[in-house]
């Protein structure tokens, strides 16, 4: 099963462990990934607000790179996923925009015709690999590990677009965790926002919002949190000391990237999955 692969900026810097883990897990899953080396940033939330044409151009170029390979595109970051989905939709809706972008892409011999399928790793597990195959690949059931799934915003909302329904219905992460033998919990932060997108300018929002989410996960018995988004991970894990200071209590909640949880169940070691790069130390926390 072949995919063009777009890791995004975060998984190539702050969350480089996510990129490493994804490559290792993909090999176990039989996913053949072609990493798009010349792909730019998708513009996060900032570029799309202040420079829509630049935003669409960068995103459609990434889709054109995948199209040139003749491959569907796999992402591992929520915000990149939504940016690419939005750009793809705008390309199909706005022919003026499509013409303009393709004129800009022509400089390097690229052209987008609107055929790239965009799928996040979480969706690839369900829609391309399938749970039966995934179950067959489990060599180390994570029995007893209690997991709090944290979806993040941009692969669950905006509602009514791209197949998204009421975000509170999300169960994809919980069902996966259960397939690997984990116990999943319900808690108030499941589909809430980590506040990452204002954090470069003002961390207080992220610290306050995410503090409440981690606290709720802990109060409901979670031994680890699980997220499909490196931006959420940066706040949940990277800011956790500041969150603890702000709350005046110890949380000590490890946070797994989704491919790391899959990797553990598929028999990869914590070292291979680079759990040592997390700010909150991972220990074998089940039972």
């Amino acid at each position: 099963m072949r995919f063009a692969y777009y890791p995004g900026c975060s998984a190539r810097s702050t969350c480089a462990e996510l990129n490493e883990a994804t490559h290792r897990v993909a090999a176990r899953l039989g996913l053949d990934l072609t990493q798009l080396e010349s792909a730019t940033c998708t513009g996060a939330r900032e570029l799309r607000a202040i420079d829509p044409v630049g935003f669409f151009t960068l995103n459609l170029r990434i889709l054109a790179l995948a199209e040139r390979e003749g491959l569907p595109l796999m992402t591992i970051c929520n915000t990149c996923t939504l940016n690419l989905l939005d750009a793809h939709a705008a390309f199909l809706e706005d022919t003026d925009l499509a013409t303009k972008v393709n004129a800009a892409l022509a400089d390097e011999g690229l052209r987008y015709s609107g055929r790239t399928r965009i799928s996040h790793f979480l969706w690839v597990l369900y829609e391309d690999i399938g749970l039966a195959r995934l179950r067959a690949l489990v060599v180390r059931p994570l029995t007893g590990l209690t997991v709090a799934a944290f979806y993040g915003c941009h692969i669950t909302r905006p509602p009514q677009r791209y197949g998204f329904v009421d975000s509170r219905n999300n169960v994809a992460l919980e069902r996966l965790a259960e397939l690997f033998g984990c116990r999943s919990i319900d808690y108030s932060g499941r589909t809430e926002c980590c506040g990452f997108h204002t954090a470069a300018a003002d961390e207080r929002i992220a610290i306050k919002l995410t503090g409440a989410h981690i606290k709720s996960a802990k109060a409901n018995g979670a031994k680890t949190m699980l997220t499909p988004c490196p931006l959420c991970h940066t706040v949940l894990d990277g800011f956790q000391r500041e969150i603890e200071e702000d709350m005046g209590e110890r949380l000590d909640m490890p946070v797994l990237h989704l491919p790391q949880l899959v990797g553990l169940a598929l028999g990869l070691s914590p070292e291979e999955l680079r759990l040592d790069r997390h700010m909150v130390e991972w220990q074998e926390r089940w039972e």
Binding site: R117, S119, L122, W123, L125, Y126, E127, D128, I129, G130, L131, A132, R135, I155, T156, Y162, G163, F164, V165, D166, N169, N170, V171, A172, R175, L179
Partner: peptide
């Protein structure tokens, strides 16, 4: 639970 791969987009709607 679905054992085979589900249709494109379905992972988003599982809980509905």
């Amino acid at each position: 639970m679905n054992a085979t791969p589900v249709a494109d987009g379905d992972a988003r709607r599982l809980g509905q």
